[in-house]
């Protein structure tokens, strides 16, 4: 067992959730690995500390106040309903507004029917929301599930999309890198799944995901170096996407480019000048991380752009 695998199991091991061969292999590894042994001790310390803090019951007075507040709200709502006379100015205004909306909807429906049918069939729930000007709610269960949810709901067959993060020994050059992304299904998948609205909503999440994954796959080395490399990666990503609020970071690879250490970052964005709100543009940036802090411009080694039809 290597350190990377061991670290994924340490929390469950410490909680005594591992059994059989997995536990034996981990124990063998920890015995020989000082670093994992020291992590074990830290986990033990934090479990010891957390055992002091238990789940706590709500004070009776607080619970009673909350129930009272809910009932008060309910009472207010009921009073409001009874207060309003049916033919009030407010009701008439609302009725007028509804009538106008219905008329607009009919006109819009007629004009939609005149457009090609397949265009309408590609419209996802999210696109529809965007067109209607809805802002995605954070209380997401109040809405229909979005097509790009990170975590599938039970019984869902939908594939989860996560940004790709790799540390490889690949040594690319212009041609091999172009060939790699040319063949990649990633671009098509993104163009199919994501829109400008999703780029805006998910950008921060994807940035965080990339950094989390990068830290996950870094199993060896000094923790301080790993942390500073992660911080540098975040700075580079932010630098690349700062000029365009609708770019979504979806790919990160630490590899070599023409023999030099490089970070390859894939960003998805909308096609310039296109009416489509799909992320059909895919930019690939290759940068030399070691030069980035001294001179950002000179750290750019190569750039590629792909446009999905």
């Amino acid at each position: 067992m290597n350190c990377r695998k061991a670290r994924r199991l340490l929390v469950d091991f410490e909680k005594k959730k591992l059994k059989g061969k997995t536990e034996d292999d981990l124990l063998l590894h920890i015995k020989d690995c000082q670093r994992c042994m020291s992590l074990c001790r830290k986990l033990e310390t934090s479990s010891l500390a957390l055992s002091e803090v238990t789940s706590e019951k709500i004070p009776e007075g607080t619970a009673a106040n909350i129930l009272e507040a809910i009932q008060e709200r309910k009472g207010n709502e009921t009073r409001e309903k009874h207060k309003r006379p049916f033919l009030s100015l407010k009701n008439l205004t609302t009725a007028g507004a509804v009538a106008i909306l219905v008329a607009v909807a009919i006109v819009a429906g007629i004009s939609l029917m005149e457009k090609p049918a397949e265009k309408a069939s590609f419209s996802t729930q999210e696109e529809k929301s965007t067109k209607q000007g809805k802002v995605p709610s954070k209380y997401a269960e109040e809405e229909a599930p979005r097509s790009h949810d990170f975590v599938s709901t039970p019984g869902s067959t939908e594939k989860i999309f996560e940004p790709l993060v790799k540390i490889t020994d690949n040594n690319y050059n212009k041609d091999t890198l172009r060939e790699f992304f040319d063949k990649s299904a990633l671009r098509k998948e993104i163009a199919k799944r994501f829109t400008v609205a999703s780029a805006i909503t998910l950008r921060a999440n994807f940035e965080q995901e990339i950094i989390d994954k990068f830290l996950d796959i870094q199993s060896e080395g000094n923790p301080k170096d790993i942390a500073s490399q992660a911080a540098l990666t975040q700075v580079i990503m932010s630098y690349l996407i700062s000029g365009e609020p609708v770019q979504l970071p979806v790919y990160l690879e630490y590899a070599k480019f023409n023999g030099e250490n490089a970070v390859i970052i894939g960003l998805a964005g909308p096609r310039f000048g296109s009416k489509s709100n799909r992320l059909k543009r895919f930019d690939v940036w290759v940068l030399a991380p070691q030069r980035f802090l001294t001179n950002r411009d000179s750290s750019i080694m190569f750039f590629l752009q792909f446009i999905e039809k």
């Binding site: 994924r8 001790r41 830290k42 310390t45 934090s46 990170f150 975590v151």
Partner: peptide, 30 residues
């Protein structure tokens, strides 16, 4: 709304960070 792998790694990192903060005080906790 995070993948299980991310949840696991965040819990792991949180516990390590907490362990580092509290290591000097371990004898008070035991």
């Amino acid at each position: 709304r995070l993948p299980v792998g991310t949840v696991k790694s965040r819990i792991f990192r949180a516990k390590i960070a907490l362990g580092e903060i509290l290591e000097p005080l371990r004898e008070h906790l035991e």
